[in-house]
Design a protein around this nucleic acid. Structure first.
Length: 419
RNA sequence: GUGGCUAUGGUGAAGCGGUUAACACUUACGACUGUGACUCGUACAUACGUGGGUUCAAAUCCCACUAGCCACCCCA
């Protein structure tokens, strides 16, 4: 039995990988427009970093992390998300002294030990961006605008933007208490999970998909009615900037977060096309996180998108680039000449293919056709004796004889632009 | 961690207790023309996820395991 890959860890093969390249290239290009620089941080960190930033009581930390002890007796974890490592680096490298505003993006694999299903894998990939140092709600709006820009450039209009505010340490406790009180009164209507959630994280009940809970919480108090003055002003301003820039969005006051560090603005880009994995990108503001991790008291905001999920939304339109020329050679000497010419032309940037195994001319022509070569150069023994070959344009079948010289070939190939 | 469904070659699949394990695609070679696409021919599963069991006989029935998918949970 051959060795197989690990459950939930996938290969990305040619044909699929082109979509990834497009996603990554689009992200790089768009994010740079908005002043973001790439940062590359390790995929492993000390376990403590994640338990402190994400929150001890979250599902991620409680049961989904790939944690182990290395040979030096250190507790380490394969990163389950990107923000913690980036912020750790920001603090450790003292990036705040270089510039009061730091805009970073990253891309790479993340790891969570979950049961795989559509759009959810144990090794998955995120592209994320973080801004440190700006409190003004304009940055919240800008991050959202950038996200929309990214999806627009990918040709995706489907994911819709939902926003919410979770308040801050000033106002959230009061809301939490109010919600908890409301839930207590309807305890018997709630599912078992939600009864448990009332204690640990009552906000989660708002997100429950059990129909009974949906009804029971339909009239639940909204976070947005419990925001303190500062948070309310902030949220109103974010919306004002989105309106002013004609960025479409919907307020979803029931949206909650799985990570503890979020404050104020939170958002998701959701789609109905991915089964139950509706979130394509999500993020929010995390004003206390940097200080919590031992850094300066600076605000932050960021998001991450799931590359697999974006790729699922992208229609498969990728194809390998067809060769400019296929050289079909008949005979050993012709094969040598074919190889020589191929090398010269490749040096000039032409995509050239040939047959390596000395197969029949018919086989070689079939392969030229299959690869979609625009031209085929046929070198037979007779032609070779005269230093000539037949150049055939595959689409039309037109062929002409020419002298076997790389410069002449290059000219012939360039003179007929690709369709 | 829980539940449902599925498991035949490189791929999609027929098959429902006794078949040379159909068919299509892909791939390879060949015919038509020393030169592709269309057409035609030939080849390609000692083998039906793994291990047991029932039976004269199992890809076909039973059990276990494993894997995959989908859903719950949670999330990107």
């Amino acid at each position: 039995m051959a060795i197989t890959g690990i459950k939930g860890f996938n290969d990305i093969l040619p044909g699929e990988v082109e979509k990834w390249q497009r996603i990554e290239a689009t992200a790089r290009r768009v994010f740079q427009i908005y002043g973001f620089s790439e940062i590359r941080v390790p995929i492993m960190e000390k376990t403590e970093l994640f338990s402190r930033s994400i929150g001890d009581a979250t599902d991620i930390v409680e049961k989904e992390m790939y944690s182990f002890t290395d040979k030096g007796e250190n507790r380490v974890t394969l990163r389950p998300e990107g923000t913690a490592g980036v912020i750790r680096s920001y603090i450790e490298q003292k990036l705040h002294v270089l510039d009061p505003v730091t805009k970073l993006y990253y891309m790479g694999p993340m790891f969570r030990y979950e049961r795989p299903q559509k759009g959810r894998y144990r090794q998955f990939h995120q592209i994320g961006a973080e801004v440190v140092g700006v409190t003004n709600p304009r940055i919240d709006a800008q991050v959202l605008i950038m996200l929309r820009h990214f999806f627009r450039d990918l040709g995706l209009t489907e994911p819709t933007l939902q926003i919410n505010s979770l308040g801050c340490p000033e106002c959230r406790p009061a809301y939490r208490a109010a919600l908890k009180g409301y839930l207590e009164e309807r305890r018997e209507l709630l599912c078992d999970d939600c009864r448990r959630r009332m204690e640990s994280n009552p906000l989660r009940a708002l997100d429950c998909k059990v129909p009974g809970c949906g009804q029971a919480t339909a009239e639940a108090p909204s976070v947005l009615d419990h925001l303190c003055r500062g948070c309310d002003d902030h949220f109103v301003a974010v919306r004002r900037h989105l309106d002013a820039t004609e960025t479409s969005y919907a307020v979803n006051h029931r949206m909650v977060r799985g990570l503890d560090y979020y404050t104020r603005t939170t958002f998701e880009l959701v789609t109905g096309l991915l089964g139950s994995q509706s979130a394509v990108a999500a993020g929010g503001r995390y004003d206390g996180l940097i200080q919590e991790l031992g850094g300066p008291n600076l605000p932050g905001i960021g998001f991450a998108m799931g590359v697999e999920r974006v790729a699922l939304l992208l229609s498969a339109n990728a194809s390998a680039k067809a060769p400019d020329l296929f050289i079909a050679a008949h005979g050993e000497a012709a094969g040598d000449e074919a190889f020589r010419l191929m090398t010269l032309l490749q040096g000039q940037g032409f995509r050239v293919e040939l047959d390596y195994e000395g197969k029949s001319l018919k086989s070689q022509m079939r392969r030229a056709d299959k690869l979609g070569a625009r031209h085929t150069l046929i070198i037979g023994e007779d032609e070779l004796a005269n230093g000539r070959g037949m150049l055939k344009e595959m689409a039309t079948g037109v062929q002409l004889e020419l002298i076997l010289e790389a410069a002449l070939l290059a000219e012939a190939l360039s003179s007929q632009p690709s369709p």
